[in-house]
Amino acid sequence: MTGPAVPEGVDVERANVARMYDYWLGGAHNFAVDREHADRIEASNRTARHAARSNRAFLRHAVQWCVARGIDQFLDLGSGVPTVGNVHEIARDARVAYVDHESVAVAHSRSILADLDRASITQADLADADAVLGAPGVADLLDLARPVAVLAVAVLHYVPGDLTALLAPYRDRLVPGGALVISHVSDEQDDPDLAARVRAAAEVFRGSANPVTLRSRAELAAPFEGLTIAEPGMVDVVDWPVARPGVEKVGMYAVCAAQG
């Protein structure tokens, strides 16, 4: 497999999490160093690729759920590299504002989205909601007076602090018909082996640039108080929107909820 063109300023000598995720999804926006590092991770964590693909399947189902509700605007927080079935490919007629704080993901995103007028990429920290919502790539593309789906898929566990406070500025801007969608790893699992594997995976990131914050089910549910949570409620990503008996769970909960 040959690598893609290298965006200006991108270091291809060091593995990058966003590109490793792209590799696990079967994308083309990764390099040899990313593939080698991802393969080493998978050798020690057999569910890494399964988790990435299950989470991407959840994203697809969640976006389709939003579209079925009439939503045609999306704010994708912590979007990574927007490829392999990402939001603008699923909701083709929608406006999609991608946001990521990491320069590598943003550089690749700019290259991928260069010819699209209904999608943008903004470099910003999702924890600074004012900076995100006021950025031209968001404010000039999305009409917040109309329903918007705020997506925070497989990103919030990399952001420390109180989850309700973190999401409050985004939730407060939702008008009736809008939606909030998250997926988040948690070691509060009914299966002790799964809980142990989640904790072990989180330990790998300790001391790195992206340490993982494990939150309880109660902490994950708190930001959705007052919203209408879609069936089947808070479940592992492999079981949204329907349970899949026999499919190995990955320890990442999914929630979709509507405003009004």
Rank of each mutant, 00 (worst) to 15 (best):
A201P: 00
E42F: 00
R92C: 12
L141C: 09
H88F: 09
G27N: 04
E102W: 07
D172P: 03
W240N: 11
A43C: 03
G137C: 13
A218C: 04
L166V: 01
V6T: 15
A15T: 06
R60K: 15
S79V: 11
H61S: 15
L151T: 08
R199K: 14
A52G: 07
N30D: 13
S109C: 06
Y253N: 14
V175H: 07
A179F: 10
D193S: 15
W65R: 15
G9A: 08
A254W: 08
V237K: 08
G260C: 09
H37K: 07
R53T: 15
F205D: 00
D128F: 04
S54M: 10
H37I: 00
G260T: 09
L142D: 10
S79N: 12
D34V: 02
V148E: 14
L163N: 10
E8Q: 15
T47W: 14
R40S: 03
D117P: 12
V67D: 13
R40W: 01
R40Y: 00
P245S: 12
F31L: 12
L116R: 14
R244D: 08
G207R: 03
R110P: 05
A139N: 03
C256F: 13
G226L: 04
E102R: 01
Y253K: 06
R244G: 01
H37A: 07
A202V: 07
D190P: 03
S183Q: 10
L142T: 11
D22P: 10
V87M: 07
A52D: 04
N210P: 00
P147L: 01
G177E: 05
W24L: 03
G78N: 04
G80T: 08
D39Q: 11
A28D: 15
D143E: 11
G70K: 08
C66A: 15
L126S: 01
R206H: 05
A91I: 04
W65L: 14
D130Y: 01
A222D: 10
A32S: 11
R206Q: 13
P232A: 04
L227K: 13
L227V: 12
F58T: 02
I182R: 08
S120D: 01
V81G: 02
A68K: 13
D34S: 00
M1N: 14
P223A: 04
A51W: 00
E231G: 12
P245F: 08
V150I: 14
V159Q: 12
A124P: 08
A230V: 11
T228C: 02
V10N: 12
R69M: 11
Q189H: 02
A114L: 11
L194D: 02
L166P: 02
G177Q: 06
V185N: 04
S54H: 04
H101N: 15
L214A: 02
P176H: 10
D187M: 05
L180I: 10
I182N: 06
L75D: 09
Q259K: 14
G3Y: 12
L126I: 12
V175D: 08
A149Q: 13
V87D: 02
Q123L: 04
A154Q: 05
V235R: 14
E248G: 07
L156N: 02
R53A: 10
L220G: 05
D239E: 06
L163V: 09
M234A: 12
E225V: 15
